[in-house]
Simulated assay, not measured.
Amino acid sequence: MKKIVIIDYGLGNLRSVLKGLEYAGANVVISSDPAEIKSADGVILPGVGAFKDAMKNIAGLLDTINEYVDSGKPMLGICLGQQILMSKSEEGGHTPGLDLIKGEVQRFPHSDLKVPHMGWNSISINSKHPFFEGIPDGSFVYFVHSYFVDTGEKNTLISCDYGTDFAASVVNNAGNVIGTQFHPEKSGDMGLKMLENFVAMC
């Protein structure tokens, strides 16, 4: 059974992610222990809250995360977990991120649309990736966020439109680090299928 570690850095909806992964057939551990993270078959970087707080809380694990990513094993960042994969965020005054994927986190521009972007929205599949195997174009997934990721075309797996077109899912150049701005664990059958795909990738 694949061992997947959910990194506990004090910000994240850990239980619902854990339940989704267990449903997908994984042995799931919630931990901030570097040895546990390095020995995992897959790692989840969850996150709910502010970018600056996330980077402060995770500072002690930067070397561990970089070493894990360099091993080529898969890592999934969810919501704020996707955002901190990026180079920087304008939230909190241009805070540096993990810089695993080139790009910037920006606030939604002022419009008639409510911010945060909350609820179900459809996604457009830009590129094929094992994480989205069996997911139809136009599927609906669940979002809760006030900031979005702006990255290059080659690093955008999925896009979504909410007044502006943004990267709903990103990938690094090597293909082993994925992020989703939406919550797979709250996105019904489609989200569970994605988590199953992630377990299969491990």
Rank of each mutant, 00 (worst) to 15 (best):
P116G: 06
I30T: 12
N57L: 01
S187D: 04
T64V: 12
T180R: 01
L76Y: 05
K52D: 14
V17N: 11
L11T: 08
C160S: 14
G77Y: 13
G103V: 06
P136M: 05
E91C: 07
K154E: 14
C160P: 02
H129W: 06
L195N: 07
I178E: 00
E22P: 12
N173S: 15
I44E: 04
F51W: 07
Y9F: 14
M194S: 01
K2I: 01
K3P: 02
I135M: 05
S39K: 15
L61M: 04
I6D: 07
G97P: 13
E133C: 02
H94T: 06
G47D: 09
V141C: 07
V69D: 09
P116Y: 04
A168S: 15
V144L: 08
G188K: 10
D161T: 07
G97A: 06
D165R: 14
S187M: 05
V29T: 11
G163D: 03
G152E: 15
V28Q: 13
G77Q: 13
T95N: 11
G47S: 09
N13P: 09
G138I: 02
L100P: 10
I65N: 08
N197E: 02
V48I: 14
K73H: 10
S71Q: 13
V171S: 05
S122K: 15
I135W: 05
H117A: 04
E196R: 15
R107Q: 07
C202N: 10
I30Y: 05
A200N: 15
P136H: 05
I6Y: 05
I58L: 14
P130K: 11
H183T: 12
T64H: 03
Y9V: 11
T156A: 10
V48S: 06
A200F: 03
G42R: 04
P109F: 00
L18S: 13
S124Y: 04
D189V: 11
D112Q: 01
G179N: 06
K2N: 12
C202A: 15
M1D: 05
S146R: 00
H129A: 02
V141Y: 12
E185T: 06
D99N: 15
C160R: 01
L113G: 01
M190W: 08
